[in-house]
Design a protein around this nucleic acid. Structure first.
Length: 1067
RNA sequence: GGGCCUGUAGCUCAGUUGGUUAGAGCGUCCGCCUGAUAAGCGGGAGGUCACUGGUUCAAGUCCAGUCAGGCCCA
């Protein structure tokens, strides 16, 4: 379409079709980028500077490649492309390197499904080596699809030296990081309560328990048990705490009880088995125990806070005497919704329990073995499955009179999705990073990060940092970076070795290491050097690292720091910019900050866009199954990538909101119509006339013409404002500036300049018009290049002899005129024209009908003198009067400056405003205004505005509030004016005929007409004008039977009588 | 249950340190122009700024609470 056609006679510019096929254009542009290595050139053209001073550092958050990309990824991709493109044009070198996330549960789950191997036990039987080998392949399944889609989106990123988190070098850097933390004392072994399948003998991740089938209804025994409190002076008698639990089997492991400090507790006197007893229960929970406590007398109340610190006798004595145990603790999570308002804590078997106990220095106990049976520590039930032990435990407690109520409780309970047995919660050994140690520092460093949207910094992310807990980094899994800790297998001769490099491993184990994955790494064992007997062996801790540890290591691990690229890393940390969706505040953003703080005491990135999520029309998640979003490929093919990019980049989704996308993708059609086509139309207009005239335009900015200056100043305004938006990472704001510039260019500059383009003789004015439009277009392309990389490149190449816009510098605004006063004057003229046209419409005066006079009146109107001809033409009036004095057309209106006057007059403000509106004020000789008791200073306290008067015959008036002016249109016509209007009607009809005949724009014609009365007189009177307008060599009245047939093409001319116009091309 | 965000025209959203008559785009209705573009241009209609209360001379804006929606955590 715009490729030069070698057979056609040379024209200065490509022949451009006014109908654009954007997807086809994009395909050609992609080929050119590939052929010319435009991306590589755009990077290489920019010097890195000394120690990377001139680099803009971008970190790519790696995706998993075992799923297909969708609209959400597309959004991220576009944002990740726009910013680097912009910075490149600003002169920075922006290396962009793709990465793949490979490890972790998603990869393993996918492999389990593909292999039909389900669960830890099954994987062990299948073989870790075969399992991991499969993972290694499967995580790269869709890499080609990803590359294709990234390319089609026009995202420039290098796949040549992509990094993968499963590469040996990457993993070695991760080991290094781990050892750094360990050496700083930031790693420790602790316990973590996880869902546990005793049937499959494996922990189940929270991820797995959330899957659809794992929760099912189940009846469990629920006990309300008495915990006798230690007697204390002032008590009305011996008190018993009422405790409710749905897991009686955890009672032998009870180590504490928790109350809500704010909650009110009642002391009740209850009669049981003939004896009186005092029980303590959350006051709000009492009603639930109507049957047991209905008659009870309240003998006092206590707050939770008063209970905290009191000791009690636990229901079983297996762990009596342990430090800090069997005391009442305060915990915020306790409520009275369920149970008694007192929670029994068995830290070995509950997440909250474990956390609260740990906070109070209580060491946990876990007297349950891998198969879910009590160990010897719980002598009475040893060997029994814990769930089966619920019954005897309840019976024993009842026999001891400690049970107030025994009920069946039906609840949703997680089950092992492989064995179908109920899960239990059980403490597992886990390795932690002591995040709480440097939490405050993270909070400080976070202040240095520029978040988009801003509230994330101190809101979602800041709060999360403040509440950060130690990070459990070990996973009892297979495909991940191994935890590099080796321990002696005999506690008699303890020894721990931590490795932070391959070299250290090779030195100690004497083998060449080519892969750090399990199971190879597990095979590295050696005799314990601290064991004189020589019998114990150093073995690796089995776990692998949480995959987020990999992600957080990305800044240094991608370059194998510190083993290689030491200097490079130091010069490229932190990143200038990263971008992911907002949920990564808990994921990548967080782990980056954790590791950067712990390892380098710096924030890992300076600017971050966290965008919202793309949802379906109904607000639900995009779902492949429901097919509730448009197909990506089809959208590319129908609208092109630029349309998708523009839609996503101009939307508030970049400020963190959701973006709903319709199933049909209609919004992309709107984007084409509202954003892309206006730019294309301007381009096609320019090339059409420049080619017809054989004119080549030049970029310059010293044009004197009113419209030209206006366009050039607007262009300067565009460059400056887009620049400041982009510097603030406000991409949507930049889109908005581009759109409104195009509106001014198309619908004012080009429309008003049209006569200059079609003037048949060369002139300076004409060349100025070409140069101005050309200058606007190429600079618009440069400014919009990051936002519409395909369209702008196509146009820029067409205008600039094949130069890619992406190798250009960001345009310098300073070479353009900066007379913004002038620009505002023109904007004021446009408003005045709109108002005048609105008056025309209100008085039913069509635009082709000339009217005698338009007046623009108000202070400062003289400034509009340069625009007189422009306005006359636009509004089609014979005369334009500018009048500084509007008193004939308007009366003054007092506009009080509330912000200034308000504080001065206080309560009288209301009265002052009312008086201003009612006109009850007096203008004094010194220019001040008296309102009631108050005297107002001109300019400071008020301005005088105008409000149109009515009642002038034949004159229509409208005010321009923001410009303190009125326009008055004389809508009275005369027969002469009517005839001129008719002549213009005739021109319009004849032009349509030319168009219908497909005449070239410079073909000469003959015209004949048949008309009576005023229509005939109009053509006689304005014959020359009509002939000139339609390029007629002759203009003749035909006989009363109308123009003859043959070559003549005619059209009816509605009017007083029967009339028609006819046209015939000449020669 | 906790935290964060969002409620402004039929739809999608702007709205600065509180200041007189709350804006834009789309849609809709009406009209207009046309020697680039009907995928063009202009105009009109359309709002108790979610609700309630408070602070203030003055609240879309600040404060408290309520309701609704979203996200995250438990």
């Amino acid at each position: 379409m715009s490729e030069p056609d070698s057979n056609a006679p040379a024209t200065p510019y490509p022949k451009v079709d006014s109908q654009a096929d954007f997807p086809a254009i994009e395909k050609r542009v992609l080929e050119r980028w590939k052929r010319d290595r435009t991306f590589e050139a755009s990077v290489e053209n920019r010097p890195a500077g000394e120690r990377g001073q001139n680099e803009f550092v971008f970190y790519d958050g790696p995706p998993f490649a075992n799923g297909m990309p969708h609209f959400g990824h597309l959004l991220t991709s576009y944002a990740k492309d726009v910013v680097p493109r912009y910075q490149t044009m600003r002169g920075r070198r922006v290396e962009r390197r793709f990465g793949w996330d490979c490890h972790g549960l998603p990869a393993e789950m996918h492999a389990e499904k593909q292999l039909g191997v389900s669960g830890r036990q099954a994987i062990l039987e299948y073989g870790i080596d075969r399992f991991n080998a499969f993972c290694r392949e499967s995580v790269l399944t869709y890499t080609q699809e990803w590359r294709d889609y990234v390319a089609r989106a026009g995202r420039w990123v290098s796949f040549d030296n992509e990094y993968r988190t499963m590469d040996l070098s990457y993993m070695e850097s991760v080991l290094w990081a781990f050892k750094q933390l360990y050496d700083k004392g930031l790693v420790y072994e602790g316990h973590r309560v996880l869902p546990y399948s005793w049937a499959a003998e494996t922990p189940v991740s929270n991820f797995e328990t959330r899957m659809d089938n794992s929760y099912r209804e189940r009846d469990d025994p629920a006990l309300t048990v008495l915990f006798p409190l230690e007697v204390r002076d002032g008590d009305p008698g011996p008190l018993n705490l009422l405790v409710w639990t749905t897991t009686p089997w955890t009672l032998p492991s009870n180590l504490a009880a928790a109350v809500g400090p704010q909650i009110e507790y009642a002391i009740l006197e209850v009669e049981r088995d003939g004896a009186k007893q005092l029980v303590v229960i959350g006051a709000a929970a009492r009603a639930k125990y109507a049957k047991e406590l209905g008659e009870a007398r309240e003998v006092g109340t206590l707050t939770g806070a008063e209970l905290v610190g009191r000791a009690y006798t636990p229901p079983f004595d297996y762990f009596v005497g342990r430090e800090k145990c069997h005391v009442i603790l305060g915990a915020e999570f306790v409520d009275t919704e369920e149970g008694t308002g007192v929670v029994h804590l068995a830290p070995g078997f509950g997440e909250d329990d474990q956390r609260v106990c740990e906070e109070h220095g209580i060491e946990l106990v876990c007297p349950v073995d891998e198969k879910g049976r009590f160990t010897a520590e719980v002598a009475d039930y040893v060997g029994q499955n814990v769930l089966a032990a619920n019954k005897p435990i309840a019976q024993d407690l009842k026999a001891r009179g400690l049970v107030l109520r025994h009920e069946q409780y039906r609840h949703n309970y997680p089950h092992c999705w492989r064995t179908d047995e109920p899960l239990i919660y059980r403490a597992m050994s886990s390795w932690y990073v002591r995040v709480t140690d440097f939490r405050e520092r993270m909070v400080q460093l976070n202040q240095e990060i520029h978040w988009i949207p801003e509230h994330i910094r101190d809101g979602q992310f800041g709060r999360w940092l403040e509440g950060a807990r130690d990070w459990s980094i070990s996973r009892n899994r297979f495909f991940g970076t191994p935890i590099p800790i080796w321990r002696s297998d005999d506690p008699t001769y303890p020894r721990v070795d931590v490795y932070g490099s391959i070299a250290e491993l090779e030195a100690d184990f004497g083998v060449k290491i080519t892969d750090l994955h399990r199971p190879m790494i597990d095979e590295l064992t050696r005799p314990n050097p601290d064991d004189p007997s020589g019998k114990s062996t150093m073995r690796r801790v089995e776990d692998v690292l949480d995959v987020w540890f990999d992600s957080g290591s990305m800044p240094f691990a991608q370059v194998h720091y510190p083993f290689e690229n030491k200097e490079w890393f130091e010069d490229h940390f932190p990143a200038d910019f990263i971008c992911e969706y907002v949920a990564q505040t808990r994921g990548w953003f967080y782990t980056l900050v954790v590791l950067a703080t712990a390892l380098f005491d710096r924030p890992p990135f300076k600017n971050v866009i966290c965008h919202g999520i793309v949802v379906a029309e109904d607000g639900r998640k995009l779902s492949k199954r429901l097919k509730n979003y448009p197909d990506l490929e089809a959208s590319y093919d129908k609208y092109g990538s630029d349309a998708l990019r523009w839609h996503l980049m101009s939307s508030p989704v970049l400020r963190g909101g959701d973006l709903a996308i319709s199933q049909t993708g209609d919004e992309f059609a709107d984007v084409v119509r509202l954003a892309l086509l206006p730019i294309w139309s301007a381009y096609s207009f320019f090339t059409m006339y420049a080619n017809a005239d054989g004119v080549r335009a030049v970029e310059r900015a010293n044009q004197e013409g009113t419209l030209d200056r206006y366009a050039l100043i607007k262009l300067r305004d565009l460059i400056e404002s887009v620049e400041s938006c982009m510097d603030a990472y406000d991409i949507a704001g930049a889109c908005d500036r581009v759109r409104s510039f195009m509106d001014a260019l198309n619908n004012w500059y080009i429309r008003r300049s049209r006569p200059r383009f079609w003037a048949s003789n060369p002139s300076q004015e004409k060349q100025d018009a070409y140069d101005t439009l050309y200058t606007c277009l190429i600079n618009l392309c440069r400014v919009a290049a990051p936002l519409l990389p395909f369209l702008t490149d196509e146009i820029h190449r067409g205008l600039c002899r094949g130069e890619s816009v992406h190798l250009e510098d960001w345009p310098s605004a300073s070479q353009l005129p900066d007379d913004f006063e002038f620009m505002h004057d023109m904007d004021r003229v446009r408003v005045a024209c709109s108002a005048a046209l609105s008056l025309r419409e209100a008085h039913r005066r069509r635009i082709r009908l000339p009217l005698p006079m338009l007046t623009i009146a108000g202070p400062g109107c003289e400034r509009l003198r340069p625009f007189i001809d422009l306005v006359r033409d636009e509004v089609n009036v014979k005369e334009l009067v500018l009048d500084e004095d509007a008193s004939q057309l308007a009366r003054p209106l007092l506009k009080v400056k509330s912000r200034v006057v308000g504080p001065k007059v206080g309560k009288d403000m209301k009265a002052v405003l009312a008086a201003a509106e009612a006109g009850s004020w007096v203008l004094q000789d010194d220019g001040r205004v008296q309102v009631g008791e108050h005297r107002l200073e001109p300019g400071v306290d008020f301005v005088l505005a105008l409000t149109a008067v009515d009642g002038l015959k034949g004159i229509a008036i409208e005010q321009l509030p923001e410009y303190n002016a009125v326009v008055a249109l004389d809508v009275r016509t005369t027969p002469e004016l009517e005839r001129e209007g008719l002549a213009r009607d005739a021109v319009r009809l004849l032009q349509q005929l030319r168009k219908d005949l497909d005449l070239e724009i410079n073909t000469r014609v003959d015209v004949r007409y048949m008309a009576q009365g005023e229509q005939a007189r109009a053509l006689e009177e304005f014959g020359d004008y009509v002939a000139e307008q339609v390029l007629a060599e002759s203009l003749e009245a035909s006989g009363s039977d109308g123009p003859a047939g043959g070559d003549w093409r005619s059209v009816d001319w509605p009017g007083e009588g029967k009339a028609c116009l006819a046209i015939r091309a000449r020669g």
